[in-house]
Design a protein around this nucleic acid. Structure first.
Length: 825
DNA sequence: TGCGTCAACCTTTTT
DNA sequence: GGTTGACGCA
């Protein structure tokens, strides 16, 4: 195994001042000697295309960057170059990424290159940039500066209420389909009115949808809230409606860089367009008169030319079409921005040639793409390892075993990742990884800020920050339980509606509603709590201007939210209480890191965290994530699981135009994350909704040349020997068994080393062994693995781990407390 | 109003 | 397999 343990093997340990993409793995031709006239370390070790991409100057630059071709490095050096040569002030640069993590990484790297000189740049996500603009320009935008940001769950709750109120479910409307339709429309910059103008109003379905959309829009406005899509759309509308406001930002940002351009949707495209338009001479002169110093920016005709635009993208990695992303933006870039220079980066510095060959072969099946072939100077490397498991647990066991093999060969856990198509697949993986005592982290999934108890606690903060946010108020109304039921809630809501007052005011006035004294008391108490909390944050109040963590503590104490959870005997509530304490700790961190920031800033940051953002490179654990989350990341070893029909490509994608092609890109993205080792695994049966279904190998597997894969257990083998004869694996497609497509019979060779049949057949069985004590030398019997000898016991308490040599299943680590084992003599 | 039980539905991917 | 909603009872 060539794991090259001597190489600097994590991104985290690399100094950002070194040529990041070209560390010890760089091949010939990429190293020094690419030019001798360069004085700046910015140009060190770049290949000719990269160098050109860093140095080129012009109105528009499109960098078509294949996976692993060093685009982030190019982008950061380009930014640094603009500053170093004094072509731009930091404040004139706007760099946009898709995730906060990518933004943070770019910021760090630029800081590594420039030091303090990088302060003042805007390096952030589309959404964060837009929030920043909208809060600054709230007055023009017709918003309050403290507007709430609704995540998709918030939107769905709101829509659900509207559907219920309108009885629209009888027409087949669900929160899911309505919210995705509204989202699509907003991504196309449509609003209710523009949609209604073109709607077929003789269709009752259509009429109802317009009504839902209208009410949704109204509710958000009344709550002073914007949903995710609004953040972009409203910024575009703001710029279009207020040329003077737009001119401020057009003047300010002279260099705009957009990463992952293939994943921009129409609204984001429009935003980029608006920002890169020139400022008309007349407007520029006005600005000069107001003391805004634009003289040196104006050209001969007096206008301020549009900002220079650099976009980086790869249509082969476009995986967000479902969210309205359109690779049209990248294919039509040259037409949209005349005078564009296009640079292709095809040399890959990440993966072995075997991995790249597989990736190229797979993506080559997508027609209608610009031909691009990744190549590496780093050598073939190991073969891809394939494994066909009996079921999801067996697959997970394979992953766990291989992780341990890699780990004992010297690879750190943090350099390994397990990918899957759907979040539901984590269950089996987690069960096995816990049992096998493999340290892991699930990235994304049920995110911290999406947990119910965290949303409850945050709703208290939101209710203070934005008193008219009815959604937040209704969430906390009876959380923790104070005897305010749905009936009372509805009464308060209609009381507010009929009197034209806010829900919050209705709570304050609830004394006159004739509700029971207990209920009234509870409502008034909550209203008072929120009012005094608001006073704490009021800058006018001399004793006020409390920080976020003080406020949160005050609200938790006053509401009893935390106390109730602590008092509960439910073990789950214990976890929930810990989560809330974690949130308190986070507010303290926030205060420390952002001494000048307030409540609204904290809530904004929380609203915009993405799955990949909480990924901690230093955690020392294996990372588990969806293929979507994996984009932009890289690992020494990658396990791509569930490579089955129905999962990858996913069932749901089959009906959608371009679905299978997008799924193929997803597979491609997964493959290209791997540096040294790639594992592809699938299961013959997979449990779904507690039901076991037969799975077939993914069509994409056949697109990888057989010579690149070393099957430890091939689909064909599993078919012939796994005792599942009637369920011939590829029967539906060609009847010839797996791999006999289009005249290439037996593309997949039989497995070289027939292992013990289903030695790994693993069940989901878990037990609690309580106080079972094991010592080195003991013999044990495992439900799945059979008998074995304990070599060593490590760890303490509930985390004790037995290192066992099984007679037939090899060496494994087991978490003693929950492993299905017993001691034998 | 709260709580228990049962049934339905679910799962694509996410800023 | 796990959550959410409807329904019925205290």
């Amino acid at each position: 195994m060539t794991l090259s343990p001597d190489l600097p093997n994590t991104p985290a340990t690399r100094s950002s001042a070194t040529p990041i993409i070209l560390d010890g793995r760089a091949g010939p031709g990429a190293g020094p000697g690419a030019g001798s006239e360069q004085q700046s370390p910015l140009f060190d070790g770049l290949n000719p295309q990269q160098l050109e991409a860093v140095k080129y100057r012009g109105p528009a630059l499109l960098i078509v960057a294949g996976a692993g071709s060093g685009k982030t490095s190019v982008l950061t050096r380009r930014v640094a170059g603009l500053i170093e040569t004094r072509e731009a002030w930091p404040s004139q640069i706007l760099a946009i990424t898709f995730t906060n993590k990518a933004a943070a990484e770019m910021r760090d790297r630029v800081r590594g290159l420039l030091g303090q000189a990088s302060d003042g740049m805007w390096i952030s996500t589309f959404h964060s940039s837009c929030v920043r603009i909208l809060r600054r320009e709230a007055e023009s935008a017709g918003l309050s500066t403290n507007f709430s940001i609704y995540d998709s769950a918030d939107s769905k709750v709101t829509i659900k209420r509207i559907i219920k109120q309108l009885d629209a479910d009888t027409l087949g409307f669900t929160p899911g389909n309505v919210s995705s339709k509204i989202s699509k429309l907003k991504n196309e910059l449509a609003d209710v009115d523009s949609y209604a103008r073109n709607a077929n109003m003789s269709d009752p379905q259509e009429v109802m949808f317009v009504e839902i959309f209208r009410q949704y829009t109204r509710r958000l406005r009344e709550a002073s809230a914007l949903d995710f899509d609004d953040l972009i759309g409203e910024t575009v509308f703001l710029f279009r409606a207020f040329p003077k406001v737009a001119a401020l930002y057009r003047r300010r940002f002279r260099h705009i860089l957009v990463d992952e351009y293939q994943d921009t949707n129409h609204a984001q495209y429009a935003l980029v367009r608006e920002l890169t338009r020139p400022v008309e001479a007349e407007l520029a002169d006005d600005m000069e008169d107001q003391g805004l110093h634009v003289k040196n920016l104006q050209d001969a005709s007096g206008q301020i030319p549009g900002a220079s635009l650099t976009v980086v993208g790869d249509s082969d990695q476009s995986i967000y079409a479902f969210r309205g992303a359109s690779s049209r933006n990248i294919t039509e870039f040259e037409r949209d921005f005349p005078g564009t220079k296009v640079i292709l980066l095809e040399q890959n510095y990440r993966s072995t040639q075997n991995i790249l060959s597989a990736a190229n072969a797979v993506i080559g099946n997508n027609f209608d793409r610009r031909e691009k072939r990744l190549w590496s100077a780093g050598g073939d490397g190991e073969k891809i390892v394939g494994y066909t498991a009996y079921n999801g647990h067996d697959e997970a066991q394979f992953v766990a075993d291989e992780i341990e093999v890699l780990h004992s060969a010297g690879m750190a856990y943090r350099d390994m990742a397990v990918f899957y198509r759907t979040n539901a697949q984590t269950r089996a993986l987690e069960e096995i990884l816990v049992r096998a005592a493999v340290p892991y982290r699930v990235v994304g999934g049920t995110k911290f800020y999406e947990r119910a108890e965290i949303k409850d606690a945050l709703a208290y903060l939101i209710a203070v920050a934005n008193p008219v946010d009815e959604l937040a108020l209704r969430r906390i109304l009876n959380t923790p339980k104070r005897g305010i039921g749905p009936a009372t809630e509805t009464q308060l809501a209609s009381f507010a509606e009929t009197n034209g007052i806010s829900f919050r005011q209705a709570m304050r006035d609830s004394g006159g509603l004739g509700l029971g004294p207990k209920v009234t008391g509870a409502i008034l108490q909550l209203a008072t709590l929120l009012d005094s909390a608001a006073l704490m944050m009021d800058p006018e109040n001399p004793a006020g201007a409390a920080n976020v963590s003080d406020l949160l503590t005050f609200l938790l104490d006053g509401s009893g939210l935390l106390a109730v959870l602590r008092a509960s005997r439910d073990a789950q509530d214990e976890v929930r209480a810990e989560n809330i304490e974690e949130l308190v700790a986070q507010t303290k961190d926030f205060n420390r890191e952002n001494p000048d920031a307030g409540l609204v800033d904290f809530l904004t940051q929380v609203s915009l965290v993405a799955a990949a953002d909480d990924l901690d490179d230093a955690s020392g654990t294996v990372s588990l994530m969806t293929l979507h989350t994996a984009k932009g990341l890289e690992y020494e070893a990658v396990f791509l699981t569930g490579v089955e029909e129905g999962l990858l490509p996913h069932q749901m994608s089959a009906g959608e135009p371009g679905g299978p092609a997008e799924e193929r890109r997803l597979f491609y993205v997964g493959i290209t994350r791997a540096r040294q080792r790639l594992y592809l695994s699938l299961a013959m049966t997979r449990a779904q909704f507690g039901e076991v279904n037969v799975a077939m190998p993914s069509r994409y597997l056949q697109e990888i040349p057989a010579t690149l894969i070393d099957w430890k257990q091939s689909p064909g083998m599993a078919n012939s020997r796994g005792g599942t004869q009637p369920r011939a694996l590829n029967a539906r497609r060609d009847g010839g068994g797996f791999g006999s497509r289009s005249g290439t019979p037996g593309q997949l060779p039989p497995a070289p080393k027939p292992k013990t049949e289903w030695a790994n057949r693993v069940t989901a069985q878990v037990r609690d062994n309580g106080d079972l004590t094991l010592n080195a030398g003991d013999r044990i019997r495992h439900v799945d693995f059979g008998d074995g000898k304990v070599n060593q016991v490590t760890g303490e308490g509930t985390k004790r781990i037995a290192h066992v040599q099984f007679d037939t299943s090899g060496a494994k680590k087991l978490l003693i407390k929950i492993a299905p084992i017993e001691k034998i003599e």
